[in-house]
Design a protein around this nucleic acid. Sequence first.
RNA 1: CGAGGAUUGGUGCAGGAGGUAGCACGCUUGGUUUGGGACCAAGAGGUCGUGAGUUCGAGUCUCACAUCCUCGACCA
Length: 480
Amino acid sequence: MDKTNVKNESITRQEDDFAQWYTDICLKAELMAYARTKGFIVYRPYGYAIWEAIKSWFDAEIKKTGHHNVYLPSLIPESLLNEEKEHVEGFAPECAIVTIGGSKPLAEKLYVRPTSETLFCDYFKDIVHSFRDLPVKDNQWCSVVRWEKTTRPFLRGSEFLWQEGHTLHATREEAEAETLGQLRLYERMGRELLAIPFTSGRKTESEKFAGAVDTYTIEALMKDGQALQSGTSHFFGQGFAEHFGIKFLDADNVQKTPWQTSWGASTRLIGAVIMVHGDDNGLVLPPFIAPTQAIIIPIRGDKDPQVAQAAIRLKEELAKAGIRVDLDDSKKSPGWKFSQYEMKGVPVRIEVGPRDVAQGVVTLTRRCDGAKQVLPLDQVAARMPEILKDIHETMYAKALAYTESHTTTCYTYDQLKEVVTTGKGYARVMWCGSHECEVKVKNDVSATSRCMPFDQTPFADTCCICGQPARAVVLFDRAY
RNA sequence: CGAGGAUUGGUGCAGGAGGUAGCACGCUUGGUUUGGGACCAAGAGGUCGUGAGUUCGAGUCUCACAUCCUCGACCA
């Protein structure tokens, strides 16, 4: 069929307008809906289920390493937020503030949390007294509010869901290990769950979190060549702890200030999944976060009892094998269903028709590459885990190849500008370390330093922007 | 916050010389279909983003506001 005749169901092509394609996917794959309050969205069941899958995986992992979940208030008294100057300057401009309680003006303004460092510090100072109280390894699943001027579903919202880990340690070494350990966990989440090869490294001074000593990041490369900061892990040193008066008596009977970290990842990861894997037919979900991993579509099921029974039996077998499976026996035509589940990114489509049943087989089609295979009906459930794993690996390999082919080592400023303005991904350059050069790049081509990768092997002596002696390898790109 | 575009049944659009709203898709019911977005028939569903103004009369003209989209500046 000619898809131009079914305009309502089709989506903008990536090539024509990537931004519009993204918005189409969010709405038409039923991930979200716009809410009444500006900048806020409804996370619809299908979108929220993706978040739940991410949450389950991450939550289980952090518990393996001794972290505990807590919940702190959503409102922060103004005086508390003001205790750390650099921090408040970073966040206050984008805060929502409660000034009335009931019907009476409040004596002190309450800030809706944009992040919870100050709340955690205030809490920590009362519960940490001895080296025996350390480490503290807390995590909070919650939403935060930031009054963003421009919002886009999942990428930047006035409210978003996230986890924020907050830890305290007796030594600098231990805190630094925690910071990097959590960064590695985010990378592993990309590798094992999201099929996204994150590019990780340290943020430059100007891209750091307000109040942090060091900020580490995982960056993902979208299909339009732009980068998306997808998670961060911060080493705070003792700055916050000193401001908030968190102290402990160490084994040597000396009062000391603990070392602190925080790390977070948000529903922005859903945006990363959409833009790393999606195509012109819709969403393409990595199998381990897909709310539905396999969709069974019977052909002529209402006319052929054998087909109907085979479909139901297959669904039961797959469910028993732990596969998230759905059966669509609605009256829609098969063609409509094919398109619909492609739009929603379901990893595996299983067609069960009269021809299949007659031969005791079913036809499987992979969303990620359209590959088809015919399998004996009684082997599907047993082989599905391996099929899903293979799809995951295919998707990861494809995304990795894309990232690698969209990372260009540049030796001149003209090269850098060309790479970031033409959607070729990261420009890998030598840089002098000055803020002025970053500002220049931003003013000239709207690109920012994404990170200083861990591999700092120099490949030139001078800064590709100003020509001064180079001090670091850094990746520049336009970013969401 | 700056520039531009948009707002009419669930969705996408038309109406735009002021006279009381129309199409397609979707939805409901019945029937025929079913291996790439099926077809026929009968139905349900809107007072035109919000608030003012002009007018005998406003979807249509004026003004203000709101929201969404895109691009910039700011941030996960």
